[in-house]
C-alpha cells in the first residue's frame, strides 16, 4: 500500500541570492553578538581563560562577533588595555567589533583600536516589526479612504461601489496627481528563495519583489514596485505601497488573504471564487483592484 508523495529524498533547494543590477543592497538586520563583560579592568589571566572557553565550544565561538561591555567597570577612569583584548580575541578567532556602556574617555581609547561605540540596547523586538506592519496597513487604509473620497468627489452621480460615508465632503485633495505623492520605483528587484512563513515580513523598498517560493497565510510581502510570486500566495501581498498605481502583482496560485495595489485593497472574501487557485495578475483599473487570469 504505497502512496506517492513528494519523494522524501528530493530535499529542499536552497538558492543563493541572485545578482541584481545594483552592486549592493542595504538591509536592516539583527546580529547576535557575544558580550564580553569586563568585571575587573586589570583582566588578569584573560588570554588563558578566553582560550579555555573557546576550546570548550569551538563551533559556537568560531568567528563570532564580540562586543566589549564595560557596564560593570565601576571606575569610569580605569584604563583598559583594549589593544591587548583585541589581540587576544583575534588570536582566538573571535571578531571584536565595539564597546558599550563605558565612559566617553574609554570609548575614545577603544576607537583608537578600531572598536566602535555600540548602542546600549541592541535588542529589537519582534513586535516592532509587527508595528511597522500595522502601520503599513493603516497607511494602506488611509490611502484607500483618501482616494475613495477623491473618486466620489469627481463624480457624485456615478454609483460608487465603495460605501459612501462622506459623500458631501469638500474636495480636499484634487491635485493629487502631481503632488509628488509617490516616487516611481527603480528598475531592480529583490529576490527571495526561501518560503516566507506566518509572522514573517519581506519588504522590497524602492524596487520589485520576486518570490520563488510559497508565502504562507499570516506572512506579508510588501513592495514599492511589482510583486511576483512563483509559489502559492496565501498571505498578504501589498504592491506599490509607496503610491505607485502602475504596480502589479503576478502570482502562480492565488490564495491570498489580502491583495493591495497602491493602497487599494481586497480581502479574501472580496476575491471571486473563480480566481482562487489560479494563475493571475492583479492591477489597478479605474482605481479598483482588478484580477485577471493569465
Amino acid at each position: 500500500m504505497t502512496t506517492n508523495t513528494d519523494s522524501y529524498k528530493s530535499g529542499q533547494t536552497q538558492g543563493q541570492p541572485g545578482s541584481a543590477a545594483s552592486s549592493f543592497e542595504l538591509k536592516g538586520s539583527m546580529l547576535t553578538v557575544i558580550e564580553l563583560h569586563v568585571l575587573d579592568p586589570v583582566l588578569a589571566n584573560f588570554a588563558a581563560e578566553i582560550k579555555k572557553k573557546v576550546s570548550q565550544a569551538p563551533d559556537f565561538f568560531n568567528r563570532a562577533p564580540v562586543a566589549i561591555d564595560l557596564a560593570q567597570v565601576k571606575n569610569t577612569e580605569s584604563i583598559i588595555d583594549f589593544a591587548d583584548i583585541v589581540e587576544v580575541l583575534k588570536r582566538n578567532q573571535l571578531i571584536p567589533i565595539g564597546v558599550r556602556n563605558g565612559s566617553a574617555a574609554q570609548h575614545k581609547r577603544a576607537l583608537d583600536q578600531g572598536l566602535f561605540s555600540l548602542a546600549t540596547s541592541s535588542m529589537r523586538s519582534f513586535d516592532s516589526q509587527q508595528d511597522t506592519q500595522t502601520e503599513l496597513q493603516q497607511k494602506a487604509k488611509q490611502q484607500k479612504q483618501q482616494k475613495q473620497q477623491k473618486e466620489e468627489n469627481k463624480d457624485l452621480k456615478e454609483k460608487s461601489s465603495y460605501s459612501s460615508s462622506n459623500a458631501n465632503a469638500e474636495s480636499t485633495s484634487s491635485s493629487n496627481k502631481n503632488s509628488g505623492f509617490y516616487t516611481a520605483h527603480q528598475a531592480y528587484s529583490k529576490t527571495v528563495y526561501q518560503p516566507i512563513r506566518s509572522g514573517q515580513q519581506v519588504y522590497a523598498k524602492g524596487c520589485d519583489l520576486v518570490i520563488l517560493s510559497t508565502v504562507s497565510a499570516g506572512a506579508d510581502i510588501i513592495s514599492d514596485g511589482h510583486i511576483h510570486v512563483y509559489g502559492s500566495l496565501r498571505g498578504r501581498a501589498l504592491a506599490g505601497v509607496n503610491g505607485d498605481e502602475s504596480a502589479r502583482i503576478f502570482c502562480q496560485n492565488l490564495e491570498a488573504q489580502l491583495i493591495s495595489i497602491a493602497g487599494y485593497y481586497r480581502v479574501i472574501e472580496e476575491i471571486e471564487e473563480n480566481f482562487r487557485n489560479q494563475s493571475v495578475q492583479i492591477y489597478l483599473k479605474d482605481q479598483r483592484v482588478t484580477i485577471e487570469k493569465m
Binding site: 526561501q194 518560503p195 516566507i196 512563513r197 506566518s198 509572522g199 514573517q200 504562507s216 497565510a217 499570516g218 506572512a219
Partner: peptide, 11 residues
C-alpha cells in the same frame, strides 16, 4: 499555522 511560525523562527 503554528508549525509554519516555528519554521520561520528556525529560518
Amino acid at each position: 499555522r503554528d508549525s509554519d511560525r516555528i519554521l520561520g523562527i528556525l529560518a
